[in-house]
Structures are given as C-alpha cells and as structure tokens.
C-alpha cells in the first residue's frame, strides 16, 4: 500500500529549480532513505511534502491526499523532525514536547516519559540552554512519542552522540515493526544502509538513483583483488571492469554484477595466485554520486 507518492514534483525559487521532477514512493511499513549532497533538495522536498512550500509543478500525496490542500488532515497522522531544530528559547524542553504532542492531537504520557528516559533528556531546562544534540532530542521525543503512521525525519541524528544514535535506530526499527512508514533523509551512509529498505539518491533536484538496497548493491558490482602469474595487460578493456588499481603486486578492481562470470573466466586464463572478493558496498556508489562522477548507471 502506498503511503506517500510524488510524481514529477518540481519547485522553483525564482529562476532556480530546487526540485526538478522528483518521483518517490513510500509504501506501508517501509523505511525509505533519502540521500544526496548538501543543497540537493532533500529539505525542500520534505517541506513540500509538509505543505509548507507549494510545489511549482507535479503531484504529491500522502495517505492518498494532496499534501497542499489536505495538509491539516494529513498532519494528524504524520510526525516530523526538521533538519534545523530551532526552539523557543524561553520554553522548557518538556513544555515544547507537550505542546507538539498536543498540536498533533495525540496524548501518550507513558510513551513520552519512556522516550525522555531512553534519550536521556532533561525536560526541565529552557531550550536556550540546550546543546544542539539536546534540541534534536526534544524534536525526536515529540515526534516518536506520537502515534503517527508516517514519520518524516530530516537528518534526525545530526548532533546525536553514537549511543543516542543507536537509541534512535532502535526506535525506527520498533516503528517499522508496528507497520509504520518512515521517510529518512540522512548523510550517514551506514545509518541508511542499516535501516532502510529503499533508497533514493537526489542530486541537484533530480532523483538519479532509486530502488531497494539489493537493487542498488547490484549496481555497484563486486570488488576483486587478483594476483596472477602473468600480467594482464588488457584488463581495462574487458567489459564490466572498472577502477583498476595496483595494490602490492596485485590488481584491485570492480566488476559489474552481470559481467562477473565473464571477467573471472578472463582472469583465470592468466593463472590465479590469489583472489579475494569483497561484498559490494553502497558507500562506493553513494560516494560516486556525491562526487558527481556517477554515470547514473543502468538498472
């Protein structure tokens, strides 16, 4: 079942196209990773989804309703953590959490207390005195203690210490187990890799890659490290081989998944002394897109 769907979503600020035909789709019970370099348009997409910005073109629906027209109805079932958490300096964290829970229309006291304990937050302090991580915790506690069907989290772990990051990951898994959907924008690749079922990569306002983790892994290919008796002068010309590097007498390179069989046959012709293969990492794929050298790839 589709919870969130955008088709051809575009947003212009004056002449500048911040979003250009964004299509994403989040299903029920899915954790959807949303990654991309700084200024790619992640927060802009999320703000459009929340009905805070109005899309220039395209459609966006949550729970089948239009994100602009039915914002209030949608928000009753959505919990949101913004990228930059600015709070009111003269209210306490506890007051802000209560306010947020109330404005959404829920009321879950025990969940609130439990989360405050788990995140180790002192709710009696004024927001002015909170550190960045603690402000983030206020927003997280408020969002996670609400009984929402969709969580929209914009870089929710920025500023959290590793221990708290783990608490956050547990919370996300719990929510997923309860059948809730999560849209998670993040720069922390390991977090995305560990939590997400699907990932979309955005760059300069365009989605340049998306799919399940498995599909994306497929894109990256396998890392091979090979030492042969005879040198392989023409390895670079073999189809499906990329990124050849010398490493203490051996060659390391990457092989596209579909060409693996073919490449191994070729290599074995030179007499294999040593061969190691590393599982495909998303890190490499992500970095390629972040750097902008990625070709887009073929699914």
């Amino acid at each position: 079942m589709t919870i969130l769907k955008t088709t051809g979503l575009s947003k212009k600020f004056g002449d500048f196209a911040a979003l250009d035909g964004v299509d994403i789709e989040v299903g029920k019970g899915e954790v959807y990773g949303f990654i991309g370099p700084n200024g790619a348009g992640k927060s802009t997409t999320i703000r459009v989804l929340l009905g805070i910005l109005k899309a220039t073109e395209g459609q966006a629906t949550i729970f089948g309703k239009d994100v602009w027209k039915d914002a209030v109805d949608i928000h009753k079932r959505v919990a949101y953590v913004p990228g930059d958490v600015n709070l009111w300096p003269n209210l306490t964290g506890g007051e802000v959490i209560d306010l947020f829970i109330k404005l959404r229309g829920g009321n879950n006291k025990s969940r609130r207390e439990e989360l405050i304990r788990r995140f180790d937050l002192d709710p009696s302090k004024k927001c002015r005195t909170y550190s960045k991580g603690n402000r983030q915790k206020v927003a997280l506690v408020a969002a996670l203690s609400s009984d929402a069907d969709l969580y929209i989290l914009d870089e929710p772990t920025s500023g959290l210490d590793p221990l708290m990051e783990r608490v956050f990951q547990e919370c996300v898994r719990e929510a997923k187990a309860e059948g809730k959907s999560i849209l998670l924008s993040s720069h922390i690749l390991s977090e995305v890799e560990q939590l997400c079922d699907k990932v979309a990569i955005i760059r300069q306002g365009k989605i340049i890659e998306k799919g399940t983790l498995k599909e994306l892994r497929h894109l990256t290919g396998t890392m091979l490290l090979v030492e042969t008796k005879e040198p392989m002068p023409n390895l670079a010309e073999v189809k499906g081989v990329r990124g050849i590097e010398q490493k203490d007498g051996a060659l390391s390179f990457q092989v596209d998944q579909e060409e693996l069989d073919h490449v191994v046959r070729y290599v074995s012709g030179f007499g294999i002394i040593r061969m190691e293969s590393a599982p495909p990492t998303l890190e490499e794929l992500f970095m390629r897109h972040y750097e902008g050298t990625g070709t887009g790839g073929a699914v």
Binding site: R47, L50, A71, H75, Y80, P82, F100, R104, A139
Partner: peptide, 14 residues
C-alpha cells in the same frame, strides 16, 4: 523567520 513555525504547521494545525 526563525524557522519555528514549521513545528506548528507540520502538525495538525492549519
């Protein structure tokens, strides 16, 4: 201007 209004509009407030 202080980016605090989205906390409120992001919830069930028109």
């Amino acid at each position: 201007k202080n980016d605090r209004i989205e906390h409120v509009l992001g919830r069930a407030v028109s």
